[in-house]
Write a protein that binds this DNA or RNA. Structure first.
Lengths: 259, 259
DNA sequence: AAGATTAAAAGGTTTGACAAATAGGTTAAT
DNA sequence: ATTAACCTATTTGTCAAACCTTTTAATCTT
């Protein structure tokens, strides 16, 4: 779309109405462009006018436009390239990028104690059980192969803890993939990219890994057999085990701090 | 923290190494500041140096610093105030803002047809069933009051469809709140802020609303009675009903397009 | 002591310029 | 004719220096 047509400017400059301004011309410009993208006025891969034209269109300077574009780029709504044939384009929405943002936020939330680990394990247990059930009916052979590959890797005793955790994350990622449900996948990014790493960081130092691998394997085979309920039940047991270990770990840390 | 101490600059300017630069000094500055925040070098409510000092510290210009700060502000990691005693501060992480980002992404995914409505309803059914089960044990009287208030509102036949949908969203929000599980709440933002509105937009024009309200009421009372399984089952039925209506709607639209 | 005035600090915005990357065409050499 | 090197225009990226607006706190006035 050429923009220019439907897109209103209507920015609130400080000089005019004196009404409540949600601070910042760049913010307002970003909001309007975002609205245009979400409304479908600007479609995926559409090219926006160049920065100078945008500046003219909105009646602001180029640095202000650039700040606005940076905001949208930070939200993965647009991307920019230099050169002729370059410019700013509407991005295809990308769950991956969103996952990173979620992971950052969740990391912070856990760090500040705003997220209780107990609650986190409950959320994991419930949502991953859902994935197990759906995966049991929707999984393909490729999905099973991916799950089994991670189990096999985790059986390697010489694997460093760090790599074990990475494999654990991939296992759960593959589990979600096996549901073949895009929206669920989107939601589960919060779990995969942040809750799982956080849990691992807390636990795996003292966790004998074999029990985890055994459960991973049993879950995989239950899914392969189409037994969703059993897979879900195993996942619940897996996380219950973690809950116990986690509490022990936290207790020991608390004791170490006071003693 | 005063910054300056632990924070390395080490930006890759175009003139130097010629190595792969992930485009943009502002991006690099933002990445470093973000890392400092996530590492805990910069704690919540810490004040960053003013923009001019940051520019000096990183060896870039003020507009570049401002772009970097806009990126972080867009991710709700920092906030800025004017005036002396003003400045840029590390924000308390805020699930609300993250939820909006998830909602934006989900809205786009639905808009571009990357999300299948069938899959969406499955995801809704499964995850909201989880909420029902947890809410049945964790809900407080205040939660029940909130749920009942929305049901009562929805009983009003003179309510405009638009307001009915808004109430529907609030009902589901209250349902999630009743689980008293922060991480689950975080995940459910995708459902609440985008999947539900999308579903409503597609359906409620032709939906006799009474059946929905009846189910909402039954779900609420099941939760009040602590019968999580029954609440989950009712929610499943609710969404199954929607699935039928939705297919009928889509079929009719497809027919109207060709005929 | 209470209120009005004012100065300073900080972010917000503008202007104008130059740098770097890159697609595409042009020219020169094979 | 083909290929390689080079130019050129376009667009984002960066910089520098100023000015504006908002907010706070110290100062002055009453």
């Amino acid at each position: 779309m050429a923009l220019g047509s439907g897109l209103q400017t209507g920015l609130q400059t400080g000089l005019q109405t004196g009404e409540i301004v949600r601070d910042g011309l760049s913010r307002q410009v970003a909001d309007q462009l975002r609205a245009a993208i979400l409304d479908g006025q600007l479609k995926v891969d559409d090219r926006l006018p160049n920065e100078e034209d945008l500046a003219k269109h909105f009646g602001v300077s180029r640095p202000t436009i650039r700040e606005a574009l940076k905001i949208l780029a930070a939200q993965n709504l647009i991307r920019s390239r230099r050169g002729p044939a370059g410019g700013t384009f509407v991005s295809r929405p990308d769950p991956q990028g969103l996952g990173e943002a979620i992971a950052d936020a969740a990391t912070l939330l856990v760090g500040t104690g705003d997220i209780d680990v107990e609650e986190m394990l409950t959320a994991r247990a419930e949502t991953e059980a859902v994935c197990c059930r759906l995966a049991a009916t929707a999984r393909t052979e490729a999905d099973l192969a991916a799950l089994r590959a991670e189990v096999a890797l985790q059986r390697d005793e010489s694997l460093r803890d760090e790599d074990f955790c990475a494999s654990d994350v991939r296992f759960h990622r593959a589990l979600v993939q096996a549901t073949h449900n895009q929206p669920l996948k989107l939601m589960m990014y919060a779990v995969i990219e942040s809750f799982i790493p956080v849990t691992n960081m807390l636990i795996y130092r003292e966790h004998e890994r074999r029990r985890s691998v055994d459960l991973h394997e049993q879950i995989t085979e239950a899914i392969a057999a189409g037994e969703g309920a059993r897979a879900a039940e195993l996942m619940g047991r897996h996380l219950e085990g973690m809950r116990g270990l986690l509490n022990a770990t936290l207790d020991r840390r608390a004791a170490g701090r006071t003693g």
